[in-house]
């Protein structure tokens, strides 16, 4: 991660680079990576979860209400990880 950030920092035009600039560049690069990496797992997870929920609903349409509620709960828990990644992104980039 740090190496990638350094790489990104080095490719930027290196005129008048102060300590603050360097910090900003590193923060921007790592922020992007933070969010991108954080989105992978939850993306797979939510896809799998919803797919299973749909097949469950197709098999037992009379249980659809219960399955839907549980699906939303599962999505909420899975999605939290991606959202924490998003918050980290904002923290790195702007705070």
């Amino acid at each position: 991660m740090e190496a990638l950030a350094r790489l990104a920092a080095e490719t930027v035009d290196t005129v008048a680079k102060t300590a603050a600039d360097e910090k900003n560049i590193a923060a921007a690069a790592s922020a992007g990576f933070a969010y991108g990496l954080a989105a992978i797992g939850p993306g797979i997870g939510i896809g799998y979860l919803v797919g299973q929920a749909v097949s469950a609903m197709a098999r037992q349409p009379e249980a659809a209400g219960m399955v839907r509620t549980t699906m939303f709960l599962g999505i909420a828990f899975t999605e939290a990880l991606a959202l924490i990644g998003f918050v980290v992104f904002i923290l790195l980039k702007f705070a």
Binding site: A76, F77, E79, A80, L83, I84, F86, V87, I90
Partner: peptide, 13 residues
């Protein structure tokens, strides 16, 4: 924490 972050981050995003 997750309750708070979920709502906040979804809406901010």
């Amino acid at each position: 924490f997750s309750l708070m972050v979920r709502l906040f981050a979804n809406m901010l995003a």
